[in-house]
């Protein structure tokens, strides 16, 4: 117990950033699942590896305040390329998503191998690192949470309608959907340091799927997703300390338990 309290103090920024991230993703992930777009954060986080490696190479030239905007702009640019290729080559968006994702990953690994990044930095990006999260990272997560809350407040009905309606007279979905995808990108960026490129998108899938399955009405989905996200964060933290395993894998494994419970409840 004492050990846990000691770790609690040591990892306080990580935990606080994690709580912000868990709440933020709970506000968007159910809509993402309902819109059959659950692989979007997965693609975004894989694309993100290239901007992250680029940033690690050039960050000494930028003030740290500009690091987050740099990641956001380059990730958005690469995401735009998905749309561009899809239109330009007249191919399905999921095909161009795969192509841009693999290209980004390939370029990121090339850059990492040709520089001194092919070690701990790369591992941190791939699997996340709870230890390295500092006050600045927490503040970034907190601001993303504030964005998420305000976007959710203004657009939740539109996101909900878009989940089962293609068109409604006089209702314009373009802006709200654009901001929705921007929000997912922001959330993915702040989540990467915590969970790593490979596992961060788990926060967008597990809890919301279970909440959607178990809730008797949609009004319960968001609070239940929040609770489940928070619980997995907490379990992930405790399990990672007790069994000395990476936080991201411990969290995902605890999320996997939800699926098991869902099977039992359904039976």
């Amino acid at each position: 117990m004492m050990e846990l309290l000691l770790y609690l103090d040591l990892f306080r920024w990580g935990l606080l950033a994690g709580i912000c991230f868990a709440i933020s993703t709970a506000l968007t992930s159910p809509f993402l699942i309902l819109q059959r777009n659950s692989l979007f954060p997965h693609a975004i986080t894989h694309i993100l590896l290239l901007p992250l490696i680029l940033l690690s190479l050039v960050k000494s030239f930028f003030p740290s305040l500009l690091h987050f905007p740099f990641l956001l702009i380059t990730t958005l640019f690469l995401s735009y390329l998905i749309h561009f290729f899809s239109k330009f080559l007249n191919i399905f968006e999921d095909t161009s998503t795969s192509m841009i994702t693999y290209l980004s990953l390939g370029l990121a690994l090339l850059l990492a191998s040709k520089t001194s990044q092919f070690d701990l930095t790369l591992l941190n990006y791939l699997f996340g690192s709870f230890v390295t999260i500092d006050k600045k990272d927490f503040l970034e997560s907190f601001f993303v949470l504030l964005f998420s809350l305000s976007f959710f407040y203004y657009f939740k009905n539109l996101w909900l309608a878009k989940s089962f309606e293609e068109e409604l007279p006089g209702i314009e979905f373009k802006t709200s959907q654009g901001l929705f995808l921007l929000l997912i990108t922001l959330q993915s960026i702040v989540g990467v340091k915590l969970m790593g490129v490979l596992l961060v998108s788990s926060f967008f899938v597990f809890s919301s799927t279970v909440a959607l399955k178990l809730s008797s009405s949609f009004s319960l989905v968001i609070p239940l997703t929040m609770f489940l996200n928070f619980l997995s964060l907490l379990f992930g933290f405790v399990i990672s300390i007790y069994f000395d395993i990476p936080f991201s894998s411990a969290t995902v494994i605890s999320m996997g338990v939800y699926l098991l419970l869902l099977f039992i409840v359904r039976k």
């Binding site: 309902l34 309608a161 989905v221």
Partner: peptide
């Protein structure tokens, strides 16, 4: 407006109750 094939592509996971469904236009 009632679209063609209304509700045919509804995600089966959607926990939307009829009450919530009918209140949505007022909110939008």
């Amino acid at each position: 407006y009632v679209p063609q094939r209304a509700g045919k592509d509804l995600n089966p996971m959607f926990p939307l109750t009829l009450r919530e469904f009918l209140h949505l236009p007022a909110l939008l």
